[in-house]
Amino acid sequence: MAEYKMTTPLTDEDVEKLKIGDIVYLSGTIYTARDAAHKRLVDLINEGKELPFDLKGSVIYFVGPTPPKPGEPIGSAGPTTSYRMDSYSPILIKHGQKGMIGKGKRSEEVKEACKKYKAVYFGATGGAGALIAKRIKKAEVIAYPELGPEAIRKLEVEDFPVTVVNDCYGGDLYEEGRKKWAKA
C-alpha cells in the first residue's frame, strides 16, 4: 500500500503507478455527475456533439451534494453508489476519462475498460460527506442546472482522499479485502 499526491488531469503514467489499496490525495479540477448526467454525456458522444467539459484525463466524482449554506462552496458531498453508472462509464473511459470516484462494486465491463484504456476507480468513504466537503475549495455548476443535486459541477479540490478500488491491472480491493478477512 503506497500513498501518492496527484494532480488532475491524470495521465496513463499516473494510472499505471496505482495498485489496489493505495491511498491517493487528489488536487486540481474534478467533475461531478450521477446517473442522469451520465446518460446525457453518453447521448452527446453518440450524437457526435461537444461535451460540457474535456474528458481527456478527467476524474468524475459520483455525488449529489446537499445545498451549500450561504458563503460556502458546497454542502455535504460524500460518494453515491457507483453501480448506477456502470452502463455509462466504459463509454466515457473509452473517450479519455481516467478516474472515477464513488463507493461500491463495479461491473466486469467497467473493470475491463479500466484495463483496456488505463483508468482507475477510486473509493471515497460513504457517509463522510461533511469531512470530504472540507477538501472542496470551489464548486460551480457547468451543465444541466435543472437536475439540481445531479447537475454537473466543476470542483476544485485539495488533497481529496481516495483509495484505489479497481486498478488498471484488473485488481479489485473489495474482492481481495474480503478474501483476506473472511472466515469460513
Binding site: V63, G64, P65, T66, K69, G75, S76, A77, G78, T80, T125, G126, G127, A128, G129, A130, L131, A133, K134, P149, P161
Partner: peptide, 24 residues
C-alpha cells in the same frame, strides 16, 4: 482508517452543524 474517518466526520458534522451525509 475508514472507521476513523467516519468518527471524525460525525464530530465535524455536529460541531459545524453540517449534514453527516449528502444523502439526507
Amino acid at each position: 482508517s475508514v472507521l476513523k474517518q467516519i468518527l471524525e466526520n460525525a464530530e465535524l458534522a455536529a460541531k459545524e452543524e453540517r449534514p453527516l451525509c449528502q444523502d439526507t
